[in-house]
Design a protein around this nucleic acid. Structure first.
Lengths: 186, 186
DNA sequence: ACCTGAACACCGTTCAAGT
DNA sequence: ACCTGAACACCGTTCAAGT
């Protein structure tokens, strides 16, 4: 126990910080509290992270990896649902990833993870030719906006719906899919 | 000058806080700094706001009023663009309004302002009957997601596009409008 | 190389005291 | 009724010092 940190303090801090984030929220996530839970002094984290922002960026990068893994499991038509389920299952993580706290351009891994999403989507819509980037952007925006607005509680129906928020989201996405089918048949 | 605060310290604090928010970002917005700029002691704000959260909620409510005013100026078909231009013009305010910092259910005015948006949209889509709530949700989600992702820098094209982010957004929204027209003609 | 303890400059919030 | 100043419990960050 006394030799717990044989070089893995960095991982221990990330794990502690992740628990604080998910259970208490971003506001409660301090380096000092993470250090406390890892059983080290408040100055120890600075051997592994230059500042709090960097710890948050690593936590967000973990989130992108998790999201990417979830989406890879899905068939093309179910990716939107996978995105939404991730947001509903990890609301605090999702907000850290997309809440605008982190300046993406300062952290290379973050930007790469975000772009990965977009590029995959463009491939899915590849059949549309020049319009693929626009269709991919629209699809991502729709699903992302839906997740954000549901998390913020902006759709009363999403809460009262039988089956919960996921059922509401499924309905909304379904209604758009109808429009897309109509377009194809035209 | 010495009698500057003849009962309007509350407004002065909101104005100072608004400037900090837009210029330095939410992270730099402390009650103490707002008090400093208003020329009062750090404890004075507590006569007008129970805590920092409440000041932030009032700032967000101001943002919703501004957004609503902008959208009322627009024709039905241009509302999405108005939403986007608001987000691009007031990125920090937009993030405060939708970043998930504030629990909407704790602040009645905030919830009312948010619901106002959604109800207006349902009227716009009223011709769709039972599907109006779903279509309204989809439209809001699309525009909101687009604004959020552009602000976070997730679309490289949006930055490099001639005409800037607004031009990119216009293209994306235009590509969706095509789909809707095809649906109607079917 | 990695961690500790003291130190500094900030916060949010409370409260007795002043006008 | 409204504001001030001191006070408390937190932070992020730095740095000399220890192992």
């Amino acid at each position: 126990m006394t030799t717990y940190h044989h070089g893995d303090l960095r991982s221990a801090l990330l794990q502690a910080a992740g628990q604080i984030l998910e259970k208490e929220g971003l506001g409660a996530l301090s380096l000092r509290e993470a250090a406390r839970r890892a059983g080290v002094s408040h100055a120890a984290p600075y051997r592994h992270f230059p500042d709090r922002e960097r710890l948050l960026a690593d936590l967000a990068a973990q989130g992108f990896e998790l999201l990417n893994a979830e989406l890879r499991k899905r068939a093309e038509g179910e990716m939107g649902l996978g995105y939404l389920e991730f947001a509903l299952a990890h609301p605090q993580r999702f907000r850290l990833m997309f809440g605008g706290q982190l300046s993406f351009n300062d952290y290379a891994e973050l930007r790469a993870a975000g772009e990965g999403r977009y590029e995959d989507l463009q491939e899915v819509f590849g059949s549309l030719g020049d319009d693929a980037p626009l269709a991919a952007a629209a699809a991502w925006a729709l699903v992302h906006g839906l997740a954000s607005l549901i998390l913020d509680g902006h759709f009363a129906q999403a809460q009262h719906e039988s089956g919960g928020a996921a059922a509401f989201a499924k309905k909304v996405l379904g209604s758009v899919r109808v429009a897309r089918a109509a377009q194809r048949s035209a």
